[in-house]
């Protein structure tokens, strides 16, 4: 008989028996958190803690040479507790993204990279042609490539064929908080690829994250939904619980939806009915 499932300390510690596996590594949390747009560094630290994230994203930018007192995000993140996932945010070409990834590897000593090649400033949607090119080169260079991509099956299949460690389709545009706009696409991608699918971008609140996990996502990467909340650390905790709940629901296997009611109480033995 299996143990009753409830949110105990064990569960809250992050489904220890069901880690997120990426490129042969196991992570105890399926929530990946960004480090940007928090009101202050202390709130960021509290949110990473409350979210229980193992992997946190950072960007790669010019060192501020004029102001050497300017702090780096590295001053606040305990690298023995959090694995850094550098991104190539802001890159518009494969060439820029590849150089940014190489600089990130040199600066941070990690082969993980979230590849982001943007095609349009207003929507921040990926440029698929440049993304595929960048990922192809980065896989060849030995990176663990995690591409931010469209919720498009063909793109995801191509990224898988190139040797990416996961695909990270968007739920909706970055920072929009619109949640999952096309659950059917994500469901199809999950069914058709064998590498992990991490939902990246567009999550607005906890139910969006739960839904992503119920659709079969292997993880959720988010930033603004937590950093921009009135109480970021509380929202981070909400995300953690939602992701764990969603994951458990996916594993448990939901009932099919039906148009008409099905009584849950027995229909036999009702008082006032005829019969033996």
């Amino acid at each position: 008989m299996s143990e009753p499932i409830h949110i105990s300390e064990r569960d809250a510690a992050g489904l220890a028996d069901d880690p997120l596996r990426l490129a042969g590594r196991a992570y105890g949390s399926r929530l990946l958190l960004g480090t940007s747009r928090y009101p202050n560094p202390q709130t960021m630290i509290e949110s990473l803690e409350a979210g229980g994230a193992c992997i946190v994203t950072v960007s790669i930018r010019r060192l501020n040479i004029a102001d050497r007192g300017a702090g780096s995000v590295l001053d606040y993140i305990d690298r023995t507790r959090y694995e850094l996932l550098p991104n190539t945010a802001g890159c518009f070409t494969a060439k820029e993204a590849v150089l940014t990834a190489q600089l990130a590897r040199e600066a941070l000593g990690t082969d993980l990279v979230k590849v982001e090649v943007i095609g349009d400033e207003d929507t921040l949607l990926p440029d698929v042609e440049q993304l595929l090119k960048a990922c192809s080169e980065l896989v060849r260079m030995g990176f663990v490539v995690l591409p931010y991509c469209n919720d498009d099956l063909i793109t995801c299949l191509k990224l898988q064929d190139l040797g990416c460690a996961a695909v990270m389709p968007l739920a909706s545009p970055i920072g929009s908080g619109m949640g999952i706009r096309n659950p059917y696409n994500l469901e199809i991608i999950r069914e058709r690829i064998t590498i992990p699918m991490i939902i990246d971008a567009g999550i607005g609140t906890a139910s969006d994250a739960a839904r992503a996990m119920e659709l079969g996502a292997d993880g959720v990467l988010l930033n603004t939904a937590v950093a921009g909340a009135h109480h970021p650390a509380e929202m981070a905790r909400a995300m953690r619980l939602a992701i764990e709940g969603g994951r458990l629901a996916y594993r448990a296997g939901r009932i099919p939806t039906r148009l008409y009611a099905t009584a849950s109480s027995p229909t036999e033995g009702m008082i006032g009915t005829s019969g033996a």
């Binding site: 960004g34 480090t35 940007s36 747009r37 928090y38 960021m44 994203t57 950072v58 960007s59 790669i60 930018r61 010019r62 060192l63 040479i65 780096s72 995000v73 590295l74 850094l84 550098p86 991104n87 945010a89 600089l103 990130a104 600066a107 941070l108 970055i174 920072g175 930033n223 603004t224």
Partner: peptide, 10 residues
């Protein structure tokens, strides 16, 4: 010459 470091990112 470009000198970079890690900054906040999503």
């Amino acid at each position: 010459i470009e000198v970079i470091t890690a900054m906040q990112g999503g």
